[in-house]
């Protein structure tokens, strides 16, 4: 194991000199930051004064008997599904009037705009901005860009060894085939974690920058979401990317070509999307669609989770199963194959 970790270290020594990983990282960071900045700009360009002047709806009731009092509910309360304290002190007739008004809000979508602004605000304030940035990379629908990028990277890193003919040079020196492949996979896991850390840091910088440049109440630094969700989405994303790393490596080892490996693994996205749509047409098979690789990944990395605990376990096991099967098949194919010279791909 120690030698495998050493191999991973030396793989990084080599891979960091390639342009490809840095380009892919730049794409990932840009896409993730698009979420932060688009939210901010949408929020900011909206009529800020609406919020400042209390332009969003609120409804108040007042009464004199038995003792004078009043009660006010705002869109903020409504969107967050909470009633301010004192509801029980409202006289019966006034309470009915209030509840009728709230029903009318719901029907007319009076607070929709407020809800949307709240959502926008969550997109660029910490810590939810981080959760959202990572979510954009992992499970932004319909294209999960994170898995696509990691598969391109996996196919490039493994495929270049075939292309340059260096696989022969490495293996002829007594490095075990499985060990070499495993070191590559470990490196890819490390690189995906590092990419998420970079995205996190850049998002923190973006949120801080927004806080600094904002002149209104939009730039709160840390007042939306939970930090535990950041940790959760981070871990879930790294775990969820494992089968995609395996798929990229498998496609490349199978075809001994970087280009074909990328095409095959990315092509799988299209095939699976079609397959999932077809399966969902049938009631019995609709559940099967949920456990297809990409569908499982998307539901796994959605925060807050839409899965109950048994579904979550099922998806967790499905991801694990895909990883194990792909890794085992890759190892078998790699072991059986003769290693030829440079393919030039």
């Amino acid at each position: 194991m120690q030698h495998t970790l050493q191999l991973t270290k030396w793989e990084w020594f080599k891979v960091r000199r390639l342009r490809m990983p840095w380009i892919l990282l730049a794409i990932a960071v840009l896409v993730s930051q698009l979420g932060v900045w688009v939210n901010y700009l949408a929020f900011h360009n909206d009529d800020v004064n609406i919020l400042m002047s209390g332009g969003f709806s609120s409804y108040s009731v007042a009464w004199d008997e038995p003792t004078p009092g009043s009660y006010t509910i705002t869109c903020s309360d409504f969107v967050n599904d909470r009633m301010p304290p004192g509801l029980d002190q409202i006289p019966e007739d006034r309470r009915a009037e209030l509840l009728k008004e709230i029903d009318a809000w719901r029907t007319e979508g009076v607070c929709d705009r407020f809800a949307s602004r709240t959502q926008l605000r969550r997109g660029f304030t910490l810590p939810n901005s981080i959760t959202q940035s990572i979510a954009i990379i992992s499970s932004f629908r319909p294209i999960a860009i994170g898995p696509i990028l990691i598969m391109i990277l996996a196919a490039s890193i493994v495929g270049s060894e075939y292309g340059y003919g260096t696989l022969r040079t490495v293996l002829a020196g007594g490095i075990g085939r499985w060990k070499f492949l495993f070191a590559k996979m470990l490196l890819l896991i490390r690189m995906s974690s590092d990419a998420l850390i970079v995205i996190t840091l850049v998002t923190v910088a973006s949120s801080l920058a927004i806080a600094l440049i904002s002149t209104d109440d939009s730039g709160g630094i840390a007042d939306s979401g939970k930090w535990s969700e950041v940790v959760l989405i981070f871990l879930k994303t790294v775990y969820g990317l494992l089968p995609f790393i395996s798929l990229g490596v498998f496609a490349t080892v199978l075809t001994t070509s970087r280009g074909v490996g990328i095409t095959l693994s990315v092509g799988y996205f299209i095939v699976e999307s079609i397959l999932a749509t077809l399966l969902r047409l049938n009631e019995t098979l609709a559940d099967v669609a949920d456990y297809l690789l990409i569908q499982a990944f998307l539901s796994w990395t959605t925060i807050p989770s839409e899965l109950n605990s048994s579904q979550a376990l099922g998806v967790f096991l499905a991801i694990l199963g895909y990883t194990v099967i792909l890794v085992a098949t890759t190892a078998w194919v790699f072991k059986q194959r003769d290693i030829a010279g440079a393919t030039g791909d």
């Binding site: 050493q6 270290k9 030396w10 080599k14 000199r17 390639l18 490495v170 490095i175 010279g341």
Partner: peptide, 25 residues
């Protein structure tokens, strides 16, 4: 061993190539 022709990483220098292989071997 070198089989057929010397295959090294084109984006690394000669020295870096040797350093890499020295490290992994």
């Amino acid at each position: 061993a070198i089989v057929e022709y010397p295959s090294f990483y084109p984006y690394l220098t000669g020295r870096e190539n040797l350093r890499y292989f020295q490290g992994i071997f």
